[in-house]
Simulated assay, not measured.
Amino acid sequence: MATFRLSRRLRSQRALDTMSDAQFAVLATLKGHGPHTLGELAERERVTAPSMNRTVNCLEEAGWITRTPDETDRRKVNIEITTQGRELVAETVRRRDMWLAQVVADLTPSQRRTLARAAAIMSEVAAR
């Protein structure tokens, strides 16, 4: 439960309050991993293609992403993040990092060491 509560607190630190977690996840994926097709995004986020299409439509309407035909296969459409989308992701990450740094700064050195060890274990578990 503590992990879920911390995750919820981090997610609340965003640059745009009206953006859903799913929308932000798509933007972060595109910023970090480059253009994707709709199917690739759906698979990566473990949602259905129609659900991802709704998310992508909202992001496109807001100007956070663009769709362009694939140069080699005109049946495919590549979804890319815009400059505004990149800036939104960067600002959200900056806010989350700042919030977490402030919270961790209030911990004792012993608590910070314990947290560092726990983070390493959690990373290992997540990689399985």
Score class of each variant (00 low, 15 high):
F24Y: 15
E80N: 08
R117E: 12
V93N: 11
D97V: 13
A118M: 12
E124F: 07
A49R: 15
R96G: 10
E71Q: 14
R86V: 04
T18V: 09
I81V: 15
V77W: 00
N78R: 15
Q102Y: 02
T83G: 07
R112C: 14
A42E: 06
F4D: 07
T108R: 12
R117T: 08
E60R: 11
P50T: 05
V47T: 14
L88G: 10
A62T: 02
T37I: 00
A22T: 06
G32M: 11
I79D: 01
R46Q: 12
A126R: 10
L10G: 00
S123I: 08
L107R: 06
A120I: 04
D73K: 03
S7M: 11
R117S: 09
S123A: 14
A90T: 03
E71A: 15
Q102I: 02
S123H: 07
I65F: 00
D106A: 14
V125T: 03
T114A: 14
R44C: 07
R96Y: 01
L100T: 07
S123G: 08
V103N: 07
I81E: 02
A49N: 10
E60M: 09
I121E: 13
R8Q: 09
S7C: 08
R94T: 09
G32Q: 10
I81N: 01
R86L: 14
I121K: 05
P35C: 06
G85Y: 09
A2V: 02
S7W: 03
P35K: 01
V103D: 11
A22W: 03
A49K: 14
M122I: 05
T82G: 03
R95N: 01
A127Y: 00
S110Q: 15
L115M: 15
A105V: 01
E43V: 05
A62G: 08
T55W: 03
T55I: 15
M122R: 11
T29N: 10
A116T: 11
T66L: 06
I79G: 00
V26D: 03
L59V: 04
E80F: 00
L10H: 00
V47L: 08
P69C: 01
A126M: 05
Q84P: 00
R5T: 12
R74M: 07
G34K: 01
R8H: 12
T29P: 00
A105L: 02
A118Y: 01
L88C: 12
R9S: 12
E91T: 13
R75F: 00
G34T: 02
D21Y: 06
M122E: 13
A118F: 08
A42I: 03
N53R: 13
P109H: 11
V104R: 12
T18G: 02
T68A: 13
R96E: 08
D21P: 03
L30P: 11
T68H: 06
